[in-house]
């Protein structure tokens, strides 16, 4: 999170709303450890990363849908698993669980 603070600060001063996605859990091979974070603004600017580039695109979509009120803050899972709703996978074969919420605390 620390590496995102300057961007977050700049965005907050510009009055932008921000969603933050954080890795909370990984199973198997996963490129980033719990705590890795990325921030997305309502205008679609991005800072940080939560994987090796595999799922960031999908995370932006999730983040925007939280900012526009169409989804609630929640845990989103990406990975190779038949029962997951998300088709976006990690090429490493691991599974990552992200918590995505608006930065309003």
């Amino acid at each position: 999170m620390k590496e995102l603070l300057n961007d977050i600060d700049r965005w907050q001063r510009a009055g932008e709303r921000i969603a933050v996605a954080r890795v909370v859990d990984i199973e198997g091979s996963g490129p980033r450890l719990p705590g890795a974070a990325m921030a997305v603004t309502e205008s679609g600017e991005v800072a940080g990363s939560v994987s090796g580039g595999c799922v960031e695109g999908a995370v932006v979509g999730e983040a925007l849908s939280i900012l526009d009120g169409s989804t609630e803050p929640r845990v989103v899972t990406f990975g190779y698993s038949d029962d997951e709703a998300f088709a976006v996978g990690l090429t490493c074969g691991g599974t990552i669980h992200l918590f995505i919420e608006e930065l309003a605390w």
Partner: peptide, 20 residues
């Protein structure tokens, strides 16, 4: 566009502790 940032005491303290 500019407006007052939202009141966020937990985040502000968290950011301050991370920075230091």
């Amino acid at each position: 566009m500019s407006s007052t940032p939202p009141d966020s005491p937990v985040f502000d303290r968290y950011a301050e502790l991370l920075r230091t």
